[in-house]
Design a protein around this nucleic acid. Structure first.
Lengths: 209, 209
DNA sequence: CAAGATATCTGTACAGCGCTTAGATATGAA
DNA sequence: TTCATATCTAAGCGCTGTACAGATATCTTG
């Protein structure tokens, strides 16, 4: 491509309202939670009129899509980092911990991410393709030194099972019923480690969050 | 108690508007999905004014609580039924299947149920108490003939791990990426069976949905 | 049966929401 | 300089959750 005609539209008035809107949304999300994420509130936070966002996003859900997309990118990056940090046999555990820790540290963002996933009924990145999505990272790590390569083990199914467990734990780790367990085990991190190891698909204990 | 003073409030005008509202909500939920569940729409469906529900529910979320509560009761009943149907070594698998099947057959209701759970940050029924909640049922079944009673097995953690896996699968089983797997395995039911069995905590395959 | 207390429901209203439309304004191209 | 176009504002529609005043039906008490 040439330089800056078809590549980037480069807005005029605001500089980059699209960017500013996504940032404002993330700021609101962290400060006030997912229920405060109205289009009008985002526009207010960004200092523009309520109708301005419609020149950059088809509707509200498209804005949330953009926020969620950045969330998935961050999650992918953090999991890649965890994988690079530990190349030993506990890599899978490290990935699981990284996943759950991200969700626990960014609960509002994780909720927006999964709201979008539920609406689309699909994980955000192509599972088939050999891209570097988190899902494929888990699957590949499973091949390298995953669970026992028994006769009945189906790679894709094992990956799905692991993903389901990690997602379930990510959503439920904060439940009040489990607080006594966290104390018993010595903190939330130990609790996450313990539950993941009981899932069988994340084999040993580790330290990577 | 005597007859009808402290027992049931028995409303006057409508007969039992509270009941009618919950039923209307469930009807709307099944017909139009969770996004159509506005308080006004429920009141419309029940044939009363928009303000009428406020004499029976503090606010909208309390109405949804009631709907979700009935959902959990139904789920508990279906799991108890599954447990009674098969008293053999595959009881745990039957419970897992019953859980996921309920969620898959009542997706909108399951969403309302878990929205409430996420908001309260707690499972709906007391996990500690020895009541007959689904959670306790899973735990007890695990004791009776669950996974291997190895040295490192912590009953509560194993139950949580199983619950996380089942919830994850319940939310993700419908994802488009998994359709080719369902075909490969011969239907969604076989897919659910296979993923659950890969979780390790639900041991063998079974037939109970 | 009469009458007052109370629970239930209606009508109306308000602020906030997502979104649309028409018009103003700033920018890039001719 | 002029025009086309991209960007933003102002105003408004129908919807939402919720509050309040008043009407009405039922229960309770005499």
């Amino acid at each position: 491509m040439s330089q800056a005609k078809t590549a980037e539209p480069r807005p005029y008035h605001h500089g980059d309202l699209r960017r500013a809107l996504v940032d404002a949304a993330r700021r609101l999300l962290e400060a006030e939670g997912p229920s405060a994420l109205s289009l009008r509130a985002v526009a207010r936070e960004a200092g523009v009129s309520p109708a301005a966002p419609y020149h950059h996003f088809k509707d509200k859900s498209e804005l949330l899509d953009a926020v969620a997309h950045e969330g998935w990118e961050t999650l992918n990056a953090q999991m890649a980092e965890a994988k690079a940090r530990d190349t030993g046999p506990h890599q899978l555990t490290g990935l699981g911990i990284a996943y759950v820790c991200f969700a626990r540290e960014n609960p509002a963002l994780y909720r927006v991410m999964y709201d979008m996933v539920r609406e689309k009924e699909a994980l955000p990145l192509d599972v088939q393709g050999d891209n570097d999505s988190a899902y494929c990272m888990v699957r590949d790590t499973m091949v390298e030194h995953g669970a026992d390569p028994g006769a009945e083990t189906h790679l894709e199914l094992a990956t799905i099972a692991a993903w389901c467990g990690a997602h379930g734990l990510a959503e439920m780790a904060g439940f009040k019923q489990f607080e006594h367990l966290k104390e018993e085990l010595g903190g939330e991190r130990a609790f996450l480690d313990a539950v993941l190891s009981h899932m069988g698909l994340f084999t040993a204990k580790h330290g990577a969050c």
